Computed example of a mutant assay.
Amino acid sequence: MRIKKILVVDDSPTDRYLLADILIKKGFEVDTADDGDVALNKMRLSEPQLILMDIVMPGKNGFQITRQIARDPDLKHIPVMICSIKGQETDRIWALSQGACDYIVKPVNADELVAKIAALAQ
């Protein structure tokens, strides 16, 4: 399955813009959400094929939302890639244990991001 539709979830307008810009230039359809609850609503309405999820956000953090997605029968088929400034190995391991399929550290390298997305589609 080729991934075309991506939902970027990040409370930072700058990070949302930068990620969306990279993805749009690479031919992806991009929607954004500034928190986890908005993201959950958008997932149900637009059915993205991938979620790029920040960790540090007000309200529910990215780990909590990822866990909620992984446990929801209607959403668990959507892969979640954590995209965070938190670069510790323990953060990556915790993200994967919450249901994330991959982890990328900001600032994001565009080629690395696209390669990780392509690897998910195989």
Rank of each mutant, 00 (worst) to 15 (best):
L45F: 03
I69D: 00
D91E: 12
M57V: 08
L23P: 04
M53A: 06
A100L: 01
D35R: 03
G87D: 11
A39Y: 02
Q88V: 09
S84D: 00
S12P: 05
V38N: 03
L19P: 04
R16W: 07
R44M: 05
H77M: 14
W94S: 13
V80F: 02
L52Y: 03
D72F: 07
D11G: 07
D91I: 05
R71W: 07
R92A: 10
K60F: 08
N41M: 11
D37K: 04
D15Q: 15
H77E: 15
K25A: 14
D35L: 05
D10L: 04
G59E: 13
V80L: 04
T32P: 04
A70K: 00
A39V: 04
F28V: 10
K42I: 00
F63Q: 02
T90Q: 13
Q88K: 15
S84M: 04
I55G: 00
V80D: 01
L45H: 09
C83L: 10
A70D: 04
C83A: 14
P79Y: 02
R67D: 06
M43H: 02
D11V: 07
L45K: 09
V30N: 08
V80C: 00
R71V: 09
I85V: 12
V38P: 00
M57R: 01
R16I: 08
P73K: 12
V38M: 10
D15S: 15
G59H: 12
H77L: 08
K60Y: 10
M53G: 04
I24G: 11
K25M: 12
I51K: 03
L50G: 02
D15M: 14
D74E: 15
K76S: 14
V9L: 03
D91S: 09
D35C: 08
N41A: 13
L18A: 08
G27W: 14
V38F: 03
E89L: 10
R92K: 15
I82F: 01
A39Q: 03
R16S: 11
P73C: 07
H77F: 10
A95H: 00
A39K: 01
P13W: 09
M81F: 05
I24N: 14
A100W: 00
I51N: 02
C83T: 07
A33C: 06
R44S: 03
Q49L: 12
G87N: 09
I85F: 10
D21V: 11
Q49N: 14
I93Q: 15
I22C: 07
M53L: 08
T90M: 12
D54E: 14
N41H: 09
A20R: 12
A20N: 10
F63E: 01
L23N: 07
F28N: 06
A39R: 02
Q68N: 11
I51E: 02
L50F: 10
S12M: 05
E29C: 11
K76F: 08
D35M: 06
K86W: 06
D72S: 12
D37A: 04
D74Q: 15
R16C: 11
G62K: 02
T14Q: 15
A20H: 10
D15W: 06
K86R: 15
M43D: 00
K76M: 14
A100T: 01
S12E: 04
Q88D: 12
L45P: 00
A100C: 05
A70Y: 01
S97N: 13
L40W: 02
M43N: 05
L18T: 07
T66E: 03
P13K: 11
M43F: 05
L40C: 05
V80H: 00
A39S: 09
Q98E: 10
M53R: 02
Q98R: 04
L52H: 00
H77V: 11
